[in-house]
Design a protein around this nucleic acid. Structure first.
Lengths: 151, 151
DNA sequence: TTTACTGCAAAGGGTTTGCAACATG
DNA sequence: CATGTTGCAAACCCTTTGCAGTAAA
């Protein structure tokens, strides 16, 4: 996929510069937190994990990072936004969502299924005149912790 | 699937009663609007289409209807909730979403692809200890209207 | 005649924005 | 030193809730 391993910070820096933005320490902290999480995290989680960063800075920076294509914003089951690193900095994946507690886990999908989605996608693009940018395949249910807690 | 055609109003009435609720005229209006829309609609759209219904009633009723399994609440790209009739009152389908204007269109997925998702789903259920309730396969891009407007 | 439903208005909670101070190229 | 960035606080918007009155079983 990638000729050589991508350095997330270098890439972030580069993409921000392209937008006339700077790769500040707040932004670096956010990227590190997202990388460490390995799952989509809420803004509140990010703020809690980065004491000293103002809420507004977190929101503003995430928005700038999204604009630069470094992170992706998701809205899943609850109404709070979650962020993850852009797929070209990690890998293509999908999500397993607990509709009880809202937690999200990354999952990988078999190549055959992925291919099926891709070809379906292009046929819909044609029939509906859409330019399709990406797709989203979520499995939604109740996580082990929540089903245990409900007992 | 259904031995005989389901009447949406009868079913709504029945499911509400089961919950100790009544099928009032406000609720009927919402159901009719959802049925006419044939796509997920925002609460604001529903309120606009039902003059005289208080915002709070719309939100409360949609919530009651969701609880009764008559409607489904979605959060797609923008952060506003959208509602549609429950799938067992319509049919299983997926969504084509414009990330520019937020509009949502219902789409049907080929049976083979659907089967692939189902079997993947049960393997994930096993491996992660999740009880999987449903899935979501969205195609996300830019609708014809928005790509034209951008020119 | 009890219980659910309604509209109104106020509160709630995640997110955005105005502004003056700060930091970076 | 010009422009981007920050923190603070206020504003914003969608949604929820308290309450007193109304309607249905």
């Amino acid at each position: 996929m990638h000729p050589q391993p991508i350095d997330v910070h270098d890439t972030a820096d580069e993409r921000l510069r392209r937008d006339g933005q700077r790769y500040t320490s707040n932004r670096r902290v956010l990227i590190d937190a997202l990388r460490a999480a390995n799952r989509p995290v809420t803004v509140l989680e990010l703020i809690d994990g980065a004491p000293g960063m103002a809420q507004s800075s977190a929101y503003r920076n995430l928005s700038v990072l999204e604009e630069a294509g470094v992170v992706r914003r998701l809205v899943t089951a609850d109404d709070t936004a979650r962020y993850e690193l852009a797929e070209d900095l990690t890998h293509h994946h999908h999500h397993l969502i607990c509709e009880s507690c809202g937690s999200v886990i990354d999952i990988d999908v078999p190549a055959e299924l992925e291919d099926g989605v891709t070809s379906f996608s292009s046929s819909v693009a044609k029939s509906h005149g859409f330019r399709i940018e990406h797709h989203r395949l979520d499995l939604i249910g109740v996580c082990p912790a929540c089903s245990t807690a409900a007992r």
